[in-house]
Amino acid sequence: MSDLLLPRPFLKWAGGKTQLTDALLERMPIYFNTYHEPFVGSGALFFRLYRERKIKQAILSDINAELIDTYLAIRDHVWEVIQLLSEFPYDKSFYYQIREKDPWSMSLAERAARMIYLNKTGYNGLYRVNRQGKFNVPFGRYKAPKYLDKDNLLAASLALQHVEILCLPFETVVERAKPGDWVYFDPPYAPVSRTSNFTSYHANGFALKDQERLRDICIDLSKNKVYVILSNSDTAIIRSLYAMPFFAVDEVQANRAINCKGAKRGKITELVITNYPVERTVQLCLLEQGLPYLNECHPTGACPCCCSAALRRRS
């Protein structure tokens, strides 16, 4: 595949998983049908899977309507978006002028161009809204922000051509995901401190009750033989939510990409949670015997094959 056809995320996103994709790919199912990403954000894992030709069908969704409209515009009207971005100056007064515009008075392409421009020129790459749902990130200071990346936008448009893109709450994935599908949940992370909450990507935020609802959805998907992988912050709350036989919990090192204080950026521990054994030898052994490899099928880690030792639960 030509480098010009290798798409990467075209948006910055708090909690974006570019730095975590290696760990996620190491833990992916060997075989799956449709890929689902109900908190699509920057789509870092989707684009990585596409670049490595590990994906056949995908459904991307999010509750953030402006985000989803941006994906739709890149898929269906990419040249219009490129033309609009080419006319946008990098200027503080222009930034606040376009920030104040009502996105819902614009065309789909105009709304997407506004989203990309504000995302790439706003402070620290944040997407944040107030309780009225209005974007309120201040102007950033960059030498040459790359809000017009023609080659990558064209590559992203190509990658999205046969992808279903939906503006729906995460819990609706249970209505779409079929046995053998793979779902990646990248929710707004549970805060590790009072000052580290980046859940304002939607006016209603994402509270503990939402984390609990997400855990319940993961259980429902497990019962329906759907493969689930989820990333979240390493906190006692998240560990307690997933402390049950359905799930295996791994610690991984990730980069903290967004923090107002540079000294607090760097390596942190995050959790990657699955409802299936991630060891390739175990997956292959079970598949060869025609057995499912969801953890609920072997809750004690007793695999009925030569790979039983590798299936023992990880703490």
Rank of each mutant, 00 (worst) to 15 (best):
E37I: 01
P245T: 11
P188G: 01
Y123S: 06
V129R: 10
Q283Y: 09
Q161K: 15
R239P: 10
L153H: 01
M28I: 11
T121E: 07
S86L: 07
I229H: 01
E270A: 01
T199R: 15
V174N: 02
I116P: 06
L286S: 06
P179T: 02
W182I: 03
A58I: 07
A309Q: 10
F198A: 05
E270Q: 12
N295K: 15
K225P: 08
F135K: 08
F10L: 07
S222Q: 09
N275Y: 10
V278K: 15
I268Q: 08
T235A: 11
G140P: 06
W182K: 07
A190W: 15
N259C: 14
S107D: 01
T172W: 12
F206L: 07
V192S: 00
A44G: 09
L4V: 09
D216T: 06
V183P: 09
L311R: 00
L24F: 13
Y31R: 05
E26S: 03
V40C: 02
L286Q: 06
I63D: 14
A309E: 15
V249N: 03
E171L: 02
R256E: 05
T300L: 04
T269Y: 00
T199N: 14
Y96Q: 12
G43E: 15
V81A: 04
V278D: 07
L286G: 02
I63E: 05
T70V: 12
A254N: 13
P103F: 10
Q97S: 15
E288K: 15
R53L: 05
P38C: 14
Y71S: 13
T21I: 13
W13D: 08
I98G: 04
P103D: 09
T281K: 14
P145C: 10
C305V: 13
S315M: 10
Y142M: 14
T300P: 05
D91S: 12
N136R: 03
F46A: 10
E37N: 06
Y293R: 08
N232P: 13
P38T: 11
R256C: 09
T235M: 02
I258C: 14
Y242F: 09
I68A: 06
D250E: 14
R75N: 02
N259P: 05
I74T: 05
G205T: 11
N124E: 06
R312Y: 09
S233G: 07
T172F: 02
V192G: 07
A302C: 07
E212F: 03
K225V: 00
R312H: 04
A73Q: 09
V272C: 04
A309Y: 14
L148E: 05
Y184E: 03
R128C: 05
R312E: 08
A156W: 09
K150D: 08
W79L: 03
